[in-house]
Computed example of a mutant assay.
Amino acid sequence: MTSTTFRIGGDLAVRRLGFGAMRLPTEPAAEREASLAVARRAVELGVTLIDTAHLYGGGANEELLAEALYPYPDGLQITTKVGVARSASTGEWGLDGRPAVLRAQVDHALRRLRVDRIELLQLHRIDPETPLADQLGTLAELRSEGKVGRIGLSEITVTELDQARAIIDVASVQNRYNLLDREHEPVLAACEAAGIAFLPWRPVAAGASGARAEIASVAAELGATPTQVTLAWLLSRSPVILPIPGTARIDHLEENLAAARLQLSPAHYDRLDRLSGQPEPPC
């Protein structure tokens, strides 16, 4: 039986199938109301891990989640990401891991989320223009100050993970990964070996899963949708994987979360596993 929970950093218990809030519109009013309803429904359905970031609307997504869910129910964890900032001169977004920027974004996130401590804070990307020790050292200081509970990284290589672990305790890694895109397989393997949570972003290959004959065939045999099959494969793939599928629609949310109840047989898992890197045969 596939485990349904995981302890991030060894102690922060969450349900493995979470929710990514990136796609939730924050305006106009009608769309915002729909976004609030989706966030609330996610929690009603048992989600305990919601992923957001400063990048998502410059903090507007964080404010939306607080409006929808505060005061937060026991056990709900909202993780956010810092390290991408908008240029004051050009208005363009870019990597910015300077200590002052990271500190400011964390302080803003605390205010927007209406919390005193962010239990899991992730560095959205490593800024190549700022020494890694300065970026991670700042996050470690914020942890010592009680503003951050655990530290994670996003879109990193195995080498960067090793370098980071020499500086801080890494609780999570958020890289792109799904059934049809396994470029970061070595990073997943490193996380599994170290007991580090692996949060795949883009956990479903949008528009592609349903077009693959083998995925559609397994879905039909199980009475499920292709999306549910690909999420169930992730949950079976490794006990450290915590998928965070995102959507702005309640029906898609309910479809996604139902994947937690879908059990793949070894034969189904193997059929899906063989799809990695294989092109779809011509009709």
Rank of each mutant, 00 (worst) to 15 (best):
H124T: 04
L49C: 01
R15K: 11
E129K: 09
L275D: 07
G94S: 15
E185G: 02
H268S: 11
S238V: 07
P203K: 04
A193Y: 02
T227H: 14
L242K: 14
H184L: 08
V43K: 00
M1K: 08
W93S: 04
R212K: 02
A29I: 06
I250A: 15
T26N: 02
Q122L: 11
P99C: 04
S3A: 12
P71M: 00
L264E: 11
I244Y: 11
S238Y: 09
A88P: 01
A171Q: 13
T79D: 03
M1S: 12
V204T: 01
V158F: 03
Y72Q: 04
R114W: 13
Q163P: 01
P73K: 03
L222H: 10
A85Q: 07
L139E: 06
L199A: 13
A140T: 05
P128T: 03
V148A: 12
R98W: 11
I151E: 10
E27C: 01
G57D: 06
V229A: 03
D127G: 06
H268E: 08
L121A: 03
L234R: 02
T26S: 02
S35Q: 12
E255A: 07
S35M: 13
A13W: 00
L123D: 12
A267T: 15
G46P: 09
E214I: 01
E33S: 13
A220T: 15
D11W: 14
A267C: 04
L222C: 03
A21L: 07
S276C: 04
E145V: 01
C283Y: 08
G149M: 09
R261M: 07
T4C: 01
L69N: 03
A34M: 11
N178G: 04
R7S: 14
S87M: 08
Q135R: 08
F6G: 06
A197I: 12
M1R: 09
Q278A: 14
A171I: 12
V106I: 13
A85E: 10
A259S: 15
G246T: 11
R261C: 08
P99S: 01
R165I: 10
E280A: 15
G246I: 14
T130H: 07
S217P: 00
A259E: 10
A220P: 00
L45I: 03
V84N: 14
S236G: 07
N256M: 11
S172R: 02
R103D: 01
P243G: 03
I250W: 00
A206W: 13
G137I: 07
L113M: 10
R32M: 14
A60K: 09
L136E: 03
A219G: 07
A190K: 12
G9F: 11
S265C: 14
A208H: 14
G210A: 11
A194M: 05
A258F: 10
E254N: 06
P245I: 06
Y269G: 07
G59H: 08
V38R: 05
T4R: 13
D51P: 09
L123K: 03
N178F: 04
G20H: 02
F19T: 01
R176A: 10
A100P: 03
Q228T: 08
V43S: 06
P131T: 07
L64W: 02
E63K: 05
P203L: 05
S217M: 01
E221M: 03
L272V: 09
A213V: 06
A68T: 05
S35C: 08
A66V: 10
L102Y: 09
G146I: 09
P28A: 05
P279W: 10
H54Q: 15
L234G: 01
